[in-house]
């Protein structure tokens, strides 16, 4: 996974609560056996006017001009602001894969669904939880200024607005450490092979039925 340290980028707004992973990447695209290539189908049912299927040439499909990410002012956005419970629903990691493939590295919302939250960090996406009123102000700021940008610094845990105002954010220390260094979880866990084997030895003596 790519490390994340700092990003100054255009912000796009996704102004609805409970955006679910079915909306982020519809089920027909889950048939892929690859990890990449989901970006063109991010928010497929909202973004295009026709029904999307894997293998279609997305550049030829009719665009929903009203959908927020299709507005020219949000072209190149790498930061998404969203409402409560973003990423609820299915555990599909295709959702963060699609967001990342589209270009988003940071998502800011009042709350995120648990599994989506985990999955995003595993893919180098920084999710930031802020109070609903603070997020609401960001929605207002984005609405009035074309090309609105934020500067996100993970080491400092700050979001800096164009006018210099700074918003601090909290993050679990272990997530921050892994993201700053782009660490691979499996590699880290396999440093503790002896602990895993010791656990198995002890537990299989107590509860052998779990190890058949």
């Amino acid at each position: 996974m790519d490390k994340f340290t700092q990003l100054k980028a255009i912000v796009a707004p996704m102004d609805r609560p409970n955006v679910d992973t079915d909306a982020i990447i519809p089920k027909q695209f889950l048939k892929s056996i690859k990890r990449s290539g989901f970006g063109p189908n991010l928010f497929d049912e909202w973004r295009y006017l026709d029904h999307g299927e894997p293998g279609m040439d997305n550049s030829q499909r009719p665009i929903n001009q009203d959908f927020v990410l299709n507005l020219p002012r949000y072209k190149g956005a790498e930061i998404l602001i969203a409402r409560e419970n973003f990423g609820c629903g299915s555990s599909r990691e295709h959702a963060p894969w699609a967001l990342l493939d589209y270009g988003f590295r940071v998502i800011i919302a009042p709350s995120f669904a648990d599994i989506f939250y985990n999955n995003s960090f595993k893919n180098g996406i920084l999710l930031i939880k802020l109070d609903a009123e603070v997020v609401d102000q960001l929605f207002k700021d984005v609405a009035v200024e074309d090309g609105y940008e934020l500067d996100v610094n993970l080491a400092e845990q700050t979001i800096t607005k164009a006018d210099g105002a700074v918003i601090k954010f909290d993050i679990d220390e272990f997530r921050k450490h892994r993201l700053l260094n782009g660490l691979d979880d499996i590699g880290l866990t396999l440093q503790h092979v002896d602990d895993i084997k010791a656990y198995e030895q002890k537990r299989s003596a107590q509860a052998p039925w779990l190890f058949v």
């Binding site: 599994i115 866990t189 396999l190 895993i196």
Partner: peptide, 20 residues
């Protein structure tokens, strides 16, 4: 509980998950 594909790979490789 449900897990994402990165964690599926983690469980396959280590029989463990890093959890809070």
């Amino acid at each position: 509980h449900g897990i994402g594909t990165s964690e599926v790979e983690h469980v396959l490789a280590t029989q463990c998950l890093v959890q809070k």
